[in-house]
Nucleic acid binder design. Structure first.
Lengths: 227, 227
DNA sequence: AGTGCACCTGACCGATCGGACAGGTCGGCG
DNA sequence: CGCCGACCTGTCCGATCGGTCAGGTGCACT
């Protein structure tokens, strides 16, 4: 482990082409002045709206888009939607979200909308450059607080199994077939047991999940990741 | 945005107490020599097995545990289990996973087992120190490749919505109640529509989801995140 | 040997579902 | 205007479900 060198700004190849998407001109200018000091980075375009961003990217073909999720004063949806559209239309484009506020759910949402990284605006310059170079290398990057937010949002996705029901082998197998909409009779045929036995298991499953129907049982089981 | 200072090693408070958990003595010594050069960090213990780690932590009460998930030649489970046990028994302890191999599912698993960060062993020294200081600040840290792995594992959890069905307002409402195991009659009462109408909606939902029963419909809808 | 648990089975019955008819209103659109 | 889609309603019927009886076996633990 442990090599030297801290992401040098030596342009071994052509510089990384970057566009800035932010509704505030001041922010764009600030970013541009920071990035232009680096020899391996090149700002090739700016945009202040979603439509403009699409057009500029179409024309300039950047490797990276620095995207503020809060375009306009409207909901976050606009930035997220743009993020999804960009990554879908341009699979090679790396979107690095650079935004003002840190919202746990927003970090996860951005990732699921195709973002390659997430950095809040008040990180120091070296952090930002590190993130940019990481996504340029086709990797990912988060500042430490965003990483914490992502960790939190990942945990709540799977941790909540407080009073987790415990199932026998047979019940799990029945549950699985239950989820695929099979009738008791068909489940019995598949497991080489009688319809009556299937009903026995189904009732135990429903009891353990506190469900009043097979549909609810499937819902609860699915929610807690059993199936 | 943008401040100066790149995580200085000035001990404003008492140094961060760290223990090293790795089955290779050489690795522990290497880490120790690196960390001891930093004034704000202090290695207060080492352990090579899970049991030893528990004991040492019990005694030395460190703020951070650098943990190699691959203890012994056995499965990854041992490291993960230790990780879960540590974070459960010592909520204030920050576990930073420092391991040799990068496995997409392992990163996500580590987080869900309570790890605060994940770093592969071949990152450079500054990256490692940055990660340690981040978790010491109660934040999170990942090297860029681990971050990429986590992004991938987050995406597969939710992205698969290829042929996503589209539902009307009414259908979504019905679907929701359906998942809670309500009968057509009760759903009708709740929505102030007749039981017949509910059956109408339910059949449309099942058709759109290619399901043969309400249970399967609930399963498919749950799987694709509609409910 | 007794106890518990997972698992299996049968019969019975009312409630519900799933699917098939055959309609209706309302708003938007060419 | 007619057409379409979302939404709403009814009736009929066989299949299925959910729940309740009352049993059975095999295995593990004490």
């Amino acid at each position: 482990m442990i090599t030297e060198a801290q992401a040098p700004a030596v342009p071994l190849t052509s510089p990384v082409r970057i566009i800035l998407v932010d509704d505030h001109a001041i922010v764009r200018h600030g970013l541009r002045s920071i990035l232009e000091r680096e020899e391996d980075l090149e700002v090739v375009g700016e945009a202040s709206t979603a439509a403009e961003a699409m057009a500029v990217i179409e024309r300039t073909r950047p490797a990276i888009a620095l995207l503020d999720l809060k375009l306009s004063t409207a909901a976050d949806t606009e930035g997220l939607d743009l993020c999804a559209e960009l990554t879908e239309r341009h699979p090679d484009l790396a979107v690095l979200v650079l935004t003002t506020f840190l919202d746990d759910s927003l970090v996860a949402a951005a990732i699921q909308h195709g973002a390659r990284g997430y950095v809040v605006k008040d990180v120091d310059t070296t952090e930002l450059l590190r993130a940019i170079r990481a996504v340029a290398r086709n990797e990912s990057a988060f500042d430490s607080r965003s990483a914490a937010a992502m960790v939190r949002s990942m945990r709540v996705k799977t941790d909540p199994q407080p009073a987790k029901a415990t199932f026998t082998e047979r019940e799990l197998r029945v549950l699985e077939l239950l989820a695929h909409g099979l009738s008791n009779r068909v489940i019995g045929a598949k497991l080489y047991i009688s319809e009556t036995t299937v009903k026995f298991h189904v009732r135990n499953i429903m009891r353990k999940l506190d469900a009043s129907s097979r549909a609810e049982a499937v819902y609860e089981a699915s929610k807690m990741g059993v199936i």
